[in-house]
Each structure stands twice: as structure tokens, then as C-alpha cells.
Design a binder for these strands. Structure first.
Lengths: 211, 211
DNA sequence: GCGTAACCTTACGCACGAGTAGGTATGCTC
DNA sequence: GAGCATACCTACTCGTGCGTAAGGTTACGC
């Protein structure tokens, strides 16, 4: 039946990407456990044993998704930040890139954070990636701050970095659920509170219980 | 064999709490799917059909955990906040209570946030609880701000509230993994950046791209 | 033109774990 | 101390979905 060669034979590299695309879609809308390998295969327009042949077991497939989306996110951010710029511009560019990525890759984001964090086998992966981000942010803060304020302790900066990353993730989740929202606007707001709050702290103001 | 009546017959209300305790423990260390009803029953020192008789299916059991832990958390916070106090003291008390709770109920926290967010059937529950918290925080900010700054838009405040809640959750996760860390110290740091950053914003300072 | 390797399929085995059937013992009430 | 309700158990059924065995088909090298 020569009418429609509906299924063209494709080289491995191409099929692998199609499978990963399908996997990210299905994982993001069903969650890791509820997603079935059959559905992923069907969504990719291929049959199940191919998935096993190319990407391995379900866990390995999920890890592959995690790595691809995680790498994309990190590279997007890294590519947007110019090390020659001053710290505030770098932070701004990073936030902008981050929210832009989430807005453009909602299901990638969902897989990375909403699914992977809860599932025991992958929590470590995500934690590691988060830790890298925290480290980067803390490092940037350190370089920005240490010159004029060498008295600031490293763990203070780390705490700040955790808070910043958490705030960004929270706003990212909100953004992922509001397709009409503007990523840049979100980035601006976070930038404001973070940068101004930090500057205020450095200027010596401290809030203490008891006004 | 009268030697050890190892299994005393207990009234329903007591057993239900024991089961919930066990369920929270197991869910927190295994995740929802990897946790088996058998393991929960065993951990509670009871057999499986009892769990089904009292708490229903696995999903219902998990929801029961969610509700109990969620209610405890919200009540802890509500109980610590005195409405007669000024806004900064209320925020401080709330943060203190929040981090205190997480430090004292690590697995309850894990169930609420690390597990429930990813699993499709429960995401709604958690989202709703989060939304309530955001609403409360936003309301508090509004009351604190509107008197002197009526020009601030409601969605700006909501964004701030999201960022604050996200930052708190992130630090809470960090806290849950560092048993030696001091909840109050964490609360203080977040309080500082939030309150001072907010005040700075209100005073008219704004960060804009291009220094 | 023909082998061979890579691509792709249908159809199954099998384990694991949710939920249940049906039965036993213990305490409480009158 | 008969009756009844409640606490509790062992031992099963059965669906679901991961992972695979064994076999077809297309392209490409020589």
C-alpha cells in the first residue's frame, strides 16, 4: 500500500529527540507514575520497544528528559548573562532569561520542578541542579558585595540566594499557570524587591523584633 | 499464649491517629506511589484491612494526611499572629511560627510540599492551600501599605506575596535538610530582606534596566 | 542484486500492590 | 452469660503497566 508511507524510517538521532519531546509532554501532563510508556510511544508516533531500545527504562527516560530540560534552562541563563556587566545587570539578565524560558517551555518546567521534586529517585538530580543555581547566585552576590562589605558572612549570602531562587521558582509556577502574564514584568518585580532589599541590608539597616 | 498481649485493642479514634502518623512517615520517606499500604499498615502496627476500614482508599488516606498536616500548619501560624500588632510584628510572628513548624514536623512538611505538589490528584489541594496563604499575606501587605500608599496596585502586592511565600518555602526545604539549623535565625533573615526591600520600594526607589 | 544491519512491529510474561471476602476474638450491655 | 457490636486477622483476586522475545521490513554497502 504505497498511498501514504505514514511512517518514514528516520535516523536514530531524530527519533530520539521526538521521543524526548513526547516524553516531556506526557510526563508534564500526567506526572511520572501516571504516564505510561505506551502513551509516550503513541504520542511520539512510534511503538514501545523503540523507546526501550533508544532511551532505556522509564526511569532512564525520565532522567534523560530532566537532563535535556535542565541543560537547556541553564544554558539559556548562562547565555544571557554577560560576565563583563555589573552585578545588578547580570542579575537582571539572569532573571529575565529564566522567566522567559519558563514562559516558553511550560511543560519542561513542569517536569523539572513539579514532577521531579516529589519522586524519590529523582529528587537528588533536581536538588543538585538547584544547588548549582544557588551556588551561582551566591557567588554573584559575593562578588558584588565583598568589595565594599567584607564583613558579610558566606552563609548569609547563601541564605539570600536560597530565598531568591525560591521566590523565582514560586513566581515561575504562577507564570506557568497564567499564559497571558508577561515574563519581563515578573522579572522586573522580583529584581526590584531583591536588589533594593539587598542594598538596604548592606547599608546597615536591620529589622529587629520589637520595632 | 498470655505472655505478652502485644496488641491491645484500642478505640477507633486512637488507632486512626496512629495510622495517620505512620502514613505521614511512610509517605514522606517513600513518596506517594512508592509507599505501599502494607508498609503503612506494618509501620502502624496493624494489618491492612484496618486501614481500609478506617481511612478508606490510598488516595483518601493521603488526603487525610494532607488535611491534618495542613490544618496544623495553618493553625500554628494563625495562633502565633496577634491581629492587634502592627504589620511588621505580624509578619515576623508568622514567619517565626512557620519555620518553627517546619523544623518540628519535617515529614509533615515533606508530605505537604515535596510529595503532594507533583502528584496530579492532589496538586489542587496544595495549590488551594498555597493560594490561601498568598491571599493572607497579600491582605496583610495591603493593610500595611494602603494607608500611606494608595497608589500601589493589587496585583503588585500579589506578586510580592507570591515571592515571599516562595522564598519561605525554599528556605523551609533547606531547613528541613539541615537539622542543626536554627528556625528563628532563618526567619530573621527572610524578614529582613522582605521588610526592608518592601519599605525601600514604597519609598519610591525603583531599579530599572540600564542602571 | 543480495546480504546485513538498523529500524520497527505485534504480542506476551510477569511482578507488584490496591482493595476485599470471610472469619475470629474481645469487650460491653442488660 | 447470652447477644451484639466492634476491633482485628489471614489469605486471596485481579487490574495495570513495565519490560521483552521473536519476528517483519526497508535502506544501504559492495
Amino acid at each position: 500500500m504505497p498511498s501514504t508511507p505514514t511512517f518514514k524510517r528516520l535516523p536514530r538521532a531524530v527519533r530520539e529527540q521526538q521521543m524526548l519531546d513526547a516524553a516531556v509532554r506526557v510526563f508534564s501532563r500526567r506526572g511520572f507514575h501516571a504516564a505510561s510508556m505506551d502513551e509516550i510511544a503513541e504520542d511520539a508516533g512510534i511503538s514501545k520497544p523503540m523507546v526501550y531500545a533508544y532511551l532505556g527504562t522509564k526511569e532512564e527516560l525520565f532522567i534523560a528528559c530532566l537532563h535535556r530540560e535542565g541543560t537547556r534552562l541553564l544554558e539559556t541563563i548562562a547565555g544571557a548573562v554577560d560576565p563583563a556587566q555589573p552585578a545588578d545587570e547580570r542579575l537582571w539578565a539572569g532573571l529575565r532569561a529564566f522567566f522567559g524560558f519558563v514562559g516558553a517551555h511550560r511543560d519542561g518546567w513542569a517536569v523539572l520542578y513539579r514532577q521531579a521534586r516529589g519522586e524519590r529517585p529523582f529528587a537528588a538530580e533536581v536538588t543538585a541542579m538547584r544547588a548549582r543555581m544557588v551556588e551561582v547566585v551566591a557567588g554573584m552576590l559575593a562578588r558584588a558585595v565583598r568589595a565594599e562589605h567584607p564583613e558579610v558572612r558566606a552563609d548569609e549570602l547563601e541564605t539570600m540566594a536560597y530565598a531568591l531562587v525560591g521566590a523565582a521558582e514560586s513566581l515561575a509556577d504562577w507564570l506557568a499557570d497564567h499564559p497571558d502574564a508577561d515574563p519581563d514584568r515578573t522579572a522586573t518585580r522580583l529584581m526590584n524587591v531583591a536588589w533594593l532589599g539587598g542594598a538596604q541590608l548592606l547599608s546597615g539597616s536591620v529589622w529587629r523584633p520589637g520595632s
